[in-house]
Write a protein that binds this DNA or RNA. Structure first.
Lengths: 348, 348
DNA sequence: ATGAAAGCGCTAACAG
DNA sequence: CTGTTAGCGCTTTCAT
């Protein structure tokens, strides 16, 4: 089959290749390629002729060919946890902002409680379909034979503290949780509850920061009532139920996610227990809805969009120059205690 | 440079190609390719030998090469609206479920209020980087020279009713809004408010279904108080402010998104106006928060995850066999009126 | 049922 | 500064 020599600007349909542009501009394909990728290497007027031809033909480089040849796809994979809360949507916005500014695309993947998804996602990486990975979930993804952190692709984790040496964007988890403890202590609380997250590093850190301050204030850790949770609103409701059924009721409860705090408050409200009059509640994350619920939730705000943005920036640096000084391979951002209506001095 | 002839299973690092597998299995690359893509064309034992070699080498096909050759990427683009509400996260889950089940990956893109993003996204399509597009935003994306709906790539729109002939997954917008009207009428309401969405088809349809029923019930459309909104919680607060400041206060208000309804209720609550005692409020979408706010919101639930799933299924069919009977190119799903605490008979 | 060979569209040496 | 050339890794006729 003979390829047409002149492109038809009227249609975008794929058949316009670099050859067409080269023909029209009267240069070689190499020059076209250079004019597009490394403008500095091409003479001014040649470049303009090429650009003109690009415009006339409606040429758009074929990404597959470029990826194959250049061995990079300009695509990043973002792995979500099973449960996608609004917090992650906000992260995503920051990520996309940074990525798209540098011409990178964004493949998303979540595990969706289907184990084979893990393998699929790792294969995406192994197949060189993506240049880098942003991990939003604590549970490291792995599959039978492949582990994502063993692939030679840059990885950035977000909000997963711990001893891992993966470049990360973190927040001051301990400091945030400590601020909650101080705030509650200042209000005069002496008995505390804590709604846990699904087991993992975040929970450890927040628990650590929370208890450390309380311990210093003379509160016995064993006296803190722990309600099991998994970050979801539903688990917050469960925690609320436990609170109600138990005779041991702390006057202040710290739920380490906003959704849990909101579910918790809802259960208490229905049981006729007033927040903050009877019990103070604090969340963690700072999602939009905390300003809309009743009462408005006191919480620790994470700079979610910034976190996403920084993570993507870090990844791009990693992709481009594989050598980042060890001390710059992680960033820790601060959090902010947002005091609203759900906390008050204890009534007794 | 000489390519290594034997692959090293101990590393995933890219260099294992189809040649390595062919060598190890003692067959040609063509056979390996067939054994993997069209198993039927290869003799049983040959195939097994190939599979064995694949396992031993840890071979993973290079997607770029495959895309280039096969002229398809097994990637779909999902375009989000500027404002990502939890409703869209739910859609995304359904989409990813359907896509990943068929081995398709998922590129996401949103406009992010930056006009040049439009061009970027359209280029993604034009560059053949994706096999299909799912449009979650009403505002058709277009750029100076390219329009996404003119590219020869299958497109599916979700929740964008109207005369467009783009294959779509829709919900019964009119019926849903009509159900709201019936519900309110049945409760005895005779004065109504309506919080609009950003201008577009959804608003037209919902307004149409809502007013049609009210008109039949003898309510003059001109008597319905319209509060401008844009789907966000913030705009719901604005609507609430307008409600409060006006002397003309309907006893029932229909906000066409849950976030607006929630913001609206919050404003009233702060002004000491009780929902539903003083005014009934109904939302639309059925996001998770509606069950957590105070009072729990009466709303129209859209089957978001199913919508996403169906949209992706439709897209896959479109991608695979480009001929779908016209009457199967769109699906309309039903909605459900969820009656909760925010609606009650008017007090007067 | 299998192999040989020809590219898909692009980039990067290497010359000139 | 620009052109020639040689593939990137895979699929797919066309033979056998």
């Amino acid at each position: 089959m003979v390829r047409k020599k002149r492109a038809r600007p009227s249609s975008y349909s794929g058949s316009i290749t670099i050859d067409d542009v080269a023909d029209m501009a009267g240069v070689s394909t190499a020059t076209v390629s250079r004019a597009l990728s490394s403008p500095g290497l091409v003479a001014r007027d040649t470049r303009e002729r090429v650009l003109e031809a690009v415009r006339n033909t409606g040429y758009i480089p074929n990404v597959a060919a470029r990826s194959l040849r250049a061995a990079r796809s300009k695509l990043a994979l973002v792995v979500f946890p099973t449960c996608i809360t609004p917090f992650f949507s906000e992260l995503l916005i920051g990520i996309e902002n940074a990525l798209s500014a540098e011409g990178y695309g964004l493949i998303t993947g979540s595990l969706l409680e289907r184990p084979e998804r893990e393998t699929q996602l790792v294969h995406l990486v192994a197949a060189k379909q993506v240049d880098g990975v942003i991990l939003l979930n604590g549970q490291m993804i792995r599959s039978d034979t492949l582990r994502v952190d063993q692939l030679d692709v840059p990885i950035v984790a977000v909000g997963v503290p711990g001893k891992s040496d993966i470049p990360s964007v973190l927040i001051g988890e301990r400091e945030g949780a400590a601020a909650v403890a101080w705030h509650l202590l200042e209000l005069g609380h002496r008995t505390f509850g804590y709604v846990t997250g699904a087991p993992g590093y975040v929970d450890d850190e927040r628990w650590g920061g929370f208890t450390e301050v309380l311990t210093e204030a003379g509160i016995a850790v064993s006296e803190i009532v722990r309600y099991p949770g998994d970050f979801t609103g539903a688990s917050g409701i469960g925690a609320g139920l436990q609170f109600i059924e138990s005779s041991k009721r702390p006057t202040a409860v710290f739920a380490i996610s906003d959704m849990m705090a909101i579910g918790f408050m809802k259960t208490l409200r229905e049981a006729g227990i007033s927040v903050p009059a009877d019990v103070s509640v604090v969340g963690f994350d700072g999602i939009e809805f905390t300003a809309f619920c009743e009462p408005e939730l006191t919480t620790i705000r994470q700079p979610s969009e910034v976190m996403g943005f920084e993570a993507a920036r870090l990844l791009i640096e990693l992709v481009q120059e594989k050598t980042i000084p060890a001390d710059e391979r992680s960033k820790t951002l601060g959090t902010e205690l947002v005091i609203r209506e759900s906390t008050a001095p204890p009534s007794r």
